[in-house]
């Protein structure tokens, strides 16, 4: 044992420069990412209002979340709905569009990449959608429907519970061709061309088999990376909801776990309770990421 420690210590000393290079980043990373997660978990077991010292309350915040807080259950339902719909659709869309773009000539490919990527890079300009779905007849959506006589008076798109969720999903999908999409385009370009020839010899008959047996397994690393990015964004819907549906939204129709967290963290100052929400969100996000990672390892097997 003594020996093992000495050995490790010598290894650490020999690699002093590695630690020196790592230190500035890692200190900040620990301070602003690792420590907050730990603090959040600890606080979730306390009552804390920022003024008094946190008081330990055991599992009370969690029982209140799941048993007494109806709005939280709406938030969970909405968040899961967003994630289940926008997660897979956006992931598949990222791949399909990347796959189509990959067949184009380099010039056209660059243009199409820009076209698809532009929404996600154009910043927080969701208010374009406010203009499209505005509640008067000057919004594009109402204007078209009125003009062709589908409706007789303008719809209050963002103030009607039934329309709010689909609109947010639409905008979220519009924004979702982001980093994962770029990773897929790049991944497709790195697939070894000789594999396709070898595949043809080995009896790959059509494009679908080629896709499943050669393309997908070759770019599995990018697929995993893309999945992490898409899943994480799919669970984090909040900005779009707040910008379009308001905060709080009509009858909490657009409440998500993150907006619920913002509500308790920045409006009501129930920090212990908000931390419990954050911890639940953390578990859901990391858990689903790890599960999907496991599934993706099987692609093409």
């Amino acid at each position: 044992m003594q020996n093992w420690w000495n050995l490790k210590l010598r290894e650490v000393k020999a690699n002093k420069h590695s630690y020196v290079l790592l230190a500035p980043y890692m200190v900040l990373f620990a301070l602003f990412t690792v420590l907050p997660v730990l603090v959040s978990v600890v606080l979730s077991f306390t009552y804390f209002n920022m003024l008094e010292f946190p008081r330990f309350v055991g599992w009370q915040n969690y029982t209140r979340l799941f048993l007494d807080d109806d709005v939280f259950l709406i938030a969970v339902k909405n968040t899961l709905l967003f994630a289940v719909i926008t997660g897979p659709i956006s992931y598949i869309a990222c791949f399909v569009f990347a796959w189509i773009i990959n067949e184009l000539s380099p010039k056209l490919r660059a243009v199409m990449t820009l076209v698809f990527y532009a929404p996600s890079i154009s910043g927080n300009v969701y208010f374009i959608w406010l203009m499209i779905f505005s509640g008067d007849r000057y919004g594009i959506a109402n204007g078209i429907l009125l003009k062709f006589g589908f409706i007789l008076e303008p719809l209050q798109w963002l103030k009607t519970e039934d329309y709010i969720l689909p609109i947010i999903i639409l905008v979220q999908l519009w924004l979702s061709l982001g980093t994962g999409f770029l990773a897929f385009i790049a991944g497709l370009q790195t697939v070894d061309r000789t594999l396709y020839e070898a595949g043809a010899v080995d009896g790959v008959r059509n494009r679908w088999q080629e896709l499943w047996f050669i393309t997908l397994p070759s770019m599995r690393p990018q697929l995993m990376f893309g999945a992490v990015i898409q899943i994480t964004t799919a669970f984090a819907v909040a900005d779009v909801s707040i910008a379009l549906a308001g905060f709080p939204s009509v009858n909490y129709a657009a409440e998500t776990i993150v907006t619920h967290l913002i509500d308790f963290g920045t409006t009501r100052f129930e920090m212990g309770y908000a931390s419990a929400i954050a911890s639940v969100l953390f578990m859901i996000m990391v858990g689903s990421n790890l599960i999907v990672q496991k599934l993706l390892r099987r692609v093409g097997e």
Binding site: L35, S40, L290
Partner: peptide, 12 residues
């Protein structure tokens, strides 16, 4: 840390 959003750590 890529697997969760900054919202999780906002309060701390």
């Amino acid at each position: 840390s890529l697997m969760f959003t900054p919202a999780v750590t906002a309060i701390p």
